[in-house]
Design a binder for these strands. Structure first.
Lengths: 354, 354
DNA sequence: ATGAAAGCGCTAACAT
DNA sequence: ATGTTAGCGCTTTCAT
């Protein structure tokens, strides 16, 4: 009897608007969606009526009738890490702006991702397009999605026949190596990331190769004994740094493949009483907001911008001429080196005892 | 002619399944949804056929027909901060598990939030329930949502007539104050957060009050000159700490309302050559993963768990007996103090010069 | 336990 | 420029 049990409000339908405006539902539909062949006067009147009736088209009805969902789904390994949540944030903003509903699904494991993509018929009726974030899809999965009319766009990975935005990971490694080498370091170690996430393996591979390439330019090589890897988080970085420091001939500088790993590495240095930038130089990747806090030198990338760019590309390929669909397009997001205090000139032998 | 232009695949409809199984569509619908009054043999046969046909009900059709969306929307100030993305992560996991589609919308400003909630008819047909994260809704907005059959659940704020999960923010402040006071500090400052986000003001208010209450237990009072505020991020914390240190009689200990603020505060200390835990003690709130990195003492809260709990409560109230709907339920998420290295006993006057 | 049929609220093709 | 109408693929009475 009270407000709790009050009957559900009845909302206005397109028919209510049509009646009130004295036109047919078809005209209302056209008018409200900005389609051609509607007299300006009619369009105005309809809009007015719609507004006054507080009319909102029912998305379910419109999807069913039109076969389009105006929804995009972003598939992401998980939402709780800095990198992924920032990509998602960037994508969400663009989708909202463009009037697309925005769904996100975290694909815990690589299996979960494969399963989801294999059952494209599950995604099919829920979305017009999906954004893959650091996730790989097989040829077959892509074909299947495309066949079902689902557009695709990726960030972090290059996928055939669809727009992708990434950073040039080879350059990332190269820049880091160049910076360290230019400071005079000779024994430079690498903290490599391996995903327990369903992350693609391309990113670490490319950064690794770029790193080696960068060293080579300075006539240096990467001592295999100075490579340690771990997960992309703080723990992984810490363990890797510990391994490097325990080496027979430890490095004087280290490149960590992500800022989070670098933070872990920093912890390990601290625990051993070593000062970053003096005893050991350290450079990361990302420019996590925390990098500033600890003065971490890093190769910055614009993460939300990448999500945004991927969303834009996706939307473009959905609305646009089908000419755009199925075209491989790689967009390189800018990177740059931010020198802070965790990197410095190589210490002289005499300083080592201080 | 090539795969690019191949026709869109035709997927199986409920009618295909019905025909193949030799039953009516109604029976298929019942069988597949686990409704009663279906012979076991029939149900099995239908399931089998559905599987072999790779049948998946069209969500749009089902939503239109049933008036339920099996979708939840989470409204969040933004996705790029640690706290919010972790709440979202927790909620997403639960929704996915329960078979709900999961949408997220970032409500940049407080106005955007109000607008969204005012136009409940916009949310109405898109979702069965919304989770409000540190967002406030007016009596009127809540009533409107409820009238439209949209369930509600919140994290961070207490909203009338719906389930909420939060931490006891009064206790948060109290625990921090108690820890600092017990260490012998007398001049204890407060770094308070104010949202440029559409954040609710309750959280800072309660933490503030709890902090004062905690000091009182030790016979201490909060010097108004030792209160500084800023946004909830690193910058805000840094500026606030700067203000505190510039005070005539600076504090020997400080409570920052979030770890991120504490990180900023830490930066400021570092820039002034002060050591946290020795020169100035600092305690934060959250247990952000970096708290560990810098040894920040903090009042830990379980953030993803809160998102998960809110999602569970929401789903419960949607499926469950309407008895659950419209009931105010506050769930307190646990908090505890994690003592690390940024807090220590008050320095003796003589130490101050060291 | 099962089936027939009437919608749900739109869009789009086809008139006019 | 506007109206008519046939679906879109389900759910849900109401019969049987």
């Amino acid at each position: 009897m009270d407000s709790t049990t009050s009957p559900r409000l009845k909302r206005a339908t397109i028919e209510d608007v049509a009646t009130a405006a004295g036109v047919s539902v078809a005209t209302v539909s056209r008018a409200l969606r900005g389609l051609p062949n509607v007299a300006t006067s009619t369009r105005d009147r309809v809009s007015e009526v719609a507004l006054s009736l507080n009319y909102q088209p029912d998305p379910a009805a419109s999807r069913l009738a039109a076969g389009r969902t105006r929804t995009v789904i972003v598939l992401v390994p998980h939402l709780s890490s800095w990198y992924f949540s920032n990509v998602v944030a960037g994508a969400e903003a663009i989708c909202a702006e463009a009037g697309y509903d925005f769904m996100v699904v975290g694909v815990g494991s690589i299996d979960a991702c494969a399963r989801l993509l294999d059952e494209s018929h599950h995604l099919e009726r829920r979305t017009d397009g999906v954004i893959l974030v650091n996730l790989v899809a097989s040829e077959e999965q892509i074909r299947s999605l495309r066949a079902r009319g689902v557009a695709l766009s990726t960030v972090g990975t290059l996928v055939d026949r669809c727009p992708s935005v990434r950073v040039d990971d080879y350059s990332v490694g190269m820049i880091a190596a160049g910076h360290l080498a230019a400071l005079g370091h000779q024994r430079i170690g690498l903290i490599s990331g391996i995903g327990d996430d369903p992350m693609n393996y391309e990113v670490p591979r490319l950064r690794h190769e770029g790193f080696v390439g960068g060293l080579r330019r300075f006539g240096l090589t990467l001592d295999p004994g100075l490579i340690a890897s771990g997960n992309f988080g703080i723990d992984g970085g810490q363990e890797a740094m510990a391994a490097l420091l325990d080496a027979d001939d430890p490095p004087t500088a280290v490149f960590a493949m992500s800022d989070e790993m670098a933070f872990g590495a920093l912890m390990e240095l601290g625990e051993r009483g070593l000062a970053a930038g003096r005893d050991v130089s350290l450079v990361g990747v990302d420019d996590h907001e925390f990098a500033r806090v600890v003065g971490l030198t890093t190769v910055r990338q614009r993460v939300p911008a990448q999500g945004a760019a991927a969303a834009r590309a996706l939307i473009e390929s959905m609305v646009g001429d089908p000419a755009l669909a199925g075209i491989t397009r790689a967009e390189d997001s800018p990177i740059d080196l931010l020198v802070r205090t965790t990197t410095g000139p190589v210490a002289h032998a005499t300083d080592a005892h201080s």
